[in-house]
């Protein structure tokens, strides 16, 4: 991080949020006027705050001493694994849609566990089977909740 000055993340986030809230504000024009009052006020506040965020972000870029710890946490190497995990979750959800809940869960649980480094086959099977049984017993039989 030495040498070249790093633009504080807030600047990017602020710009993103300003764009988003600006778009939302435009959307409110399509809504019945009376119903649009509250949203307009909210979104206007959103826009103002996003702009402020950009402003403060610039200030922090120019004066690195002001950077808070929470500004520095977003590094690609750090977020890479969680993003992969999230991807797996999305695939799981999609799978539920196509193969139904129990099959999807049956497949997903060991995959997840292996990813997390669980080596014991016994643990894999036990968890998978018991979890599915548990969800089935509680949700489908007792509580009569129909799962997909």
């Amino acid at each position: 991080m030495a040498g070249k000055r790093k633009i504080n993340n807030d600047v990017y986030i602020g710009i993103l949020l300003t764009a988003l809230s600006g778009f939302l504000f435009y959307e409110t024009s399509k809504i019945h006027p009376e119903a649009a009052q509250f949203p307009k006020v909210m979104i206007a506040a959103f826009i103002i705050m996003s702009v402020l965020l950009v402003f403060f972000g610039i200030r922090k870029t120019l004066n690195p001493a002001l950077t808070l710890k929470s500004d520095t946490l977003l590094k690609f190497r750090v977020i890479r694994t969680p993003l992969i995990v999230f991807g797996v979750v999305v695939i799981y959800l999609a799978l539920i849609r196509f193969t139904g809940f129990f099959i999807a869960t049956f497949i997903f649980v060991p995959v997840f566990m292996i990813f997390y480094g669980v080596k014991s086959i016994r643990a894999l099977i036990l968890t998978d089977v018991l979890l599915n049984l548990f969800v089935y017993g509680l949700f489908v039989r007792l509580l009569k909740v129909m799962l997909p």
């Binding site: 809940f101 997903f108 669980v118 979890l131 969800v135």
Partner: peptide, 19 residues
């Protein structure tokens, strides 16, 4: 172990949100 807990939480979260 997180390896067991994490998938359990995910599955239960999905079921809970759906139910």
């Amino acid at each position: 172990p997180t390896g067991i807990l994490a998938p359990v939480i995910v599955v239960l979260s999905v079921v809970g949100a759906y139910a």
